[in-house]
């Protein structure tokens, strides 16, 4: 009895100590990101430059702004609720990011250990955003429009083709060999053909993006529809379902997890095709901007566009994940994801 009680006291003691440690670490952790961003601002503003880089003051101001925002969040603490919780989750990352930018700033602008023009300091990229922001925005809009039209067209046609292939033996007979032969061909291989066969480079690009999206969607929708448990059809048929019901209310929902795999694959290959198409023929968009910046040796512009491209692609993938989580909520208990 006593032994057990002692153990419990010991356990409480350990927990108390652990809690105190977490508190201490938490307090330090909360001020650390703000402190590091302040340090970055200081290094940027006051360390003498090896070269004369414009927009250094603006970079320091931006770092200070972020530091201020982080300090406010740390000060408000629990009062911010779930948003504060989410920001707190990223605190270690924000701290690491400040360190990374500081190292980068030192190696380029301050010490010039990494030679220009291939290596540019952070303020050069900031300069691009400040001076050419509207041009980049235009490129994002242009690329987004092209990508949107291409993927929606491709995913729609691929989805319908996949259902037809999975459902109708005749469609499967004729469609299967075509897909077998043309499916593995990378969409970029169609580029020369597309640019002379289509009236404009824009329509050619839409075709290429649609192709890149459509083929994986078609293949996976097809495999999804043809792997539906036949007992699901028996159930619906005994309850009086007609063909239409079997396709749209049984086969399609059952195939949705496959369709989403196809959409993820299609979206990533559509990014590749978009960039290549814009580099080859289209005179606008982020791919074109990358090519143009590289051609002029404007490496800061190139890096700036690369960062934007990465963020745009990541956002689109995240949006597709959100859509899947909404539509396939029923799968949550069946699969770990």
């Amino acid at each position: 009895m006593f032994g057990a009680a002692d153990e419990r006291v010991g356990f409480l003691d350990v927990r108390l100590r652990r809690d105190r440690w977490i508190c201490a670490r938490g307090a330090l952790g909360r001020v650390l990101p703000a402190a590091l961003w302040t340090a970055l601002a200081g290094v940027t503003a006051f360390w003498p430059q090896a070269d004369d880089w414009p927009r250094t003051r603006e970079l320091a101001a931006l770092a200070l702004l972020i530091a201020g925002a982080l300090a406010t969040i740390a000060f408000l603490g629990r009062r911010l609720g779930t948003i504060g919780e989410r920001i707190r989750h990223w605190e270690p990352w924000l701290a690491a990011l400040a360190t990374l930018v500081a190292v980068w700033e030192l190696l380029t602008a301050k010490l010039a250990w990494l030679p220009p023009p291939f290596f540019v300091p952070p303020q050069a990229i900031l300069e691009v955003y400040l001076d050419e922001g509207d041009k980049l925005l235009e490129c994002i809009l242009y690329s987004g429009l092209l990508l949107g039209q291409g993927t929606i067209l491709g995913a729609g046609i691929g989805f319908l083709a996949g259902i037809a292939l999975g459902w109708s033996p005749r469609a499967s007979y004729w469609g299967h060999p075509i897909l077998r032969v043309l499916g593995p061909l990378p969409a970029t291989a169609w580029l020369p053909f597309a640019f002379f066969a289509f009236p404009s480079s824009r329509s050619a690009s839409i075709f290429l993006v649609a192709l890149a999206t459509g083929i994986p969607v078609a293949v996976l929708t097809w495999s999804g529809v043809s792997s539906v448990n036949s007992a699901y059809y028996d159930v619906a048929r005994t309850l009086g379902a007609n063909q239409r019901f079997l396709v749209w209310k049984v086969a399609v929902p059952a195939a949705m997890p496959h369709v989403f795999v196809g959409l993820f694959m299609g979206l990533s290959s559509s990014f590749a095709v978009l960039v290549v198409a814009e580099m080859m023929g289209v005179k606008a968009g982020l791919g074109w901007y990358l090519q143009w910046a590289q051609g002029w040796g404007a490496y800061a512009n190139m890096y700036a566009a690369l960062i934007v491209l990465a963020l745009v692609c990541a956002t689109l993938v995240a949006l597709l994940f959100k859509l899947r989580d909404r539509l396939l909520a029923w799968q949550k208990g069946l699969l770990k994801w």
């Binding site: 699901y232 028996d234 159930v235 619906a236 309850l239 379902a241 019901f245 929902p253 029923w330 799968q331």
Partner: peptide, 26 residues
């Protein structure tokens, strides 16, 4: 003439209510 199979074969993407509604929907 309705059948109850050895496996319940409920549609996993529908709630219980949605599954029961099948015959009315068709």
């Amino acid at each position: 003439r309705v059948v109850v199979f050895q496996d319940p074969t409920l549609y996993p993407w529908r709630t219980v209510e949605g599954n029961v509604a099948l015959g009315l929907e068709t």
